[in-house]
Amino acid sequence: MPAAPDAACPVLTLAHGRQPETDLEVKRSHFLARAARTDTEAEARALIAEVRAEHPTARHHCSAFIIGVPGAQPVERSNDDGEPSGTAGQPILEVLRGTGLVGVSVVVTRYFGGTLLGTGGLVRAYSQAAAQALDAARRARLVTRYLWDVRVPVAEAGRLEAELRSVPRDVALAVEETVWGATHAVLMLSTDSPDADALTALLASVSQGTAVPQAAGSRLIEQPC
C-alpha cells in the first residue's frame, strides 16, 4: 500500500492505468520510456517484466522506482540493466526524485542505433527520456479520508442522510453509504480530518443530540491533479 498522507499534505503520484510511452531518438538510438503507478515493489517489478516482454529485442530495459512505506522512508531502487554503471538507472531515479512523486516506476528501453554515446551521453539520454515520460503521464494525488459510523433509528435515517448530503461543500463531509437494518441504519460518513469534534457538533445539531460518530478507520482516495 502507498504511504498514508496527512490531509494537509497529500501524496503526489500517477493515476492508475496505462500511461503514454514516449520515444526519444539520440544518434539513431531510440529510448522508449514509460512511467506508471506502482504502489508496491512487486508491482514495480511486474511493470519492468511487462515492458521487457513488449520489447524482447531491445538491448536494455533500465529502470527506477520510488515506493511509499507507511511510517518509514520510501524505498528507492534503480537498475542499469547492462549499461555502464551509473549511466542509466541512477539518472532515471534522480529525475523521478525531482518530481516529488511516490508510488511510481519509470522504465526506459533502449534500441541501440549503432553509435556509442559515451557515459555523459547516456546519462543525458536516460535523464531526458525519463523526464519526457513523467511529463506525459497523468498525475494524481492521494488524500486521506477519515471514516465514521453513525447508528440511527431507521425512522430517522432518511432525513438525517438528506440533511448531511446537503451540508455545504466547505465542510468536507461526505455520506459514503447507508446500511439498513431492521430497526437501525448505519450512516457511513467520511471527513478530511481525524478530529471528531466538528462532526459530533454537526450531528448533534441535526439529530437533537442522538447521533454520535464512531471512528471506523481511514482510506486513501485518488484525485486528479
Rank of each mutant, 00 (worst) to 15 (best):
A3T: 13
A7D: 10
A7V: 10
P10W: 05
L14H: 01
A15S: 14
R18G: 08
R18M: 12
Q19T: 05
P20F: 02
P20Y: 03
E25R: 13
R28D: 13
R28C: 09
S29K: 11
A33Y: 09
A36D: 13
T40N: 03
T40D: 11
E43D: 15
A46W: 04
E50H: 14
V51H: 10
R52M: 09
A53R: 14
A58G: 10
A64I: 06
F65I: 05
F65Y: 15
G71F: 03
P74G: 10
E76A: 08
E76F: 08
R77Q: 13
D80C: 07
G82H: 11
P84L: 08
S85I: 06
A88S: 14
A88Y: 02
P91K: 05
I92S: 01
L93W: 03
E94G: 07
E94D: 15
V95K: 02
L96P: 00
V102K: 10
S105W: 02
S105C: 14
V106R: 00
G113I: 07
T119D: 12
G121A: 09
L122N: 07
V123L: 07
R124F: 04
A129M: 09
A129Q: 04
A130M: 05
A131V: 02
D135Q: 14
A136R: 09
R139T: 15
A140P: 03
W148E: 08
D149W: 04
P153I: 09
A155Y: 01
E161K: 09
L164A: 00
S166L: 13
D170G: 04
A172S: 11
V179Q: 14
W180Q: 09
A182G: 04
L189C: 00
P194W: 10
P194Y: 06
A198C: 04
A201E: 14
A201W: 08
L203G: 02
G209Y: 08
A211E: 00
V212H: 12
P213G: 01
P213W: 01
A215V: 12
A216N: 14
L220P: 06
E222H: 05
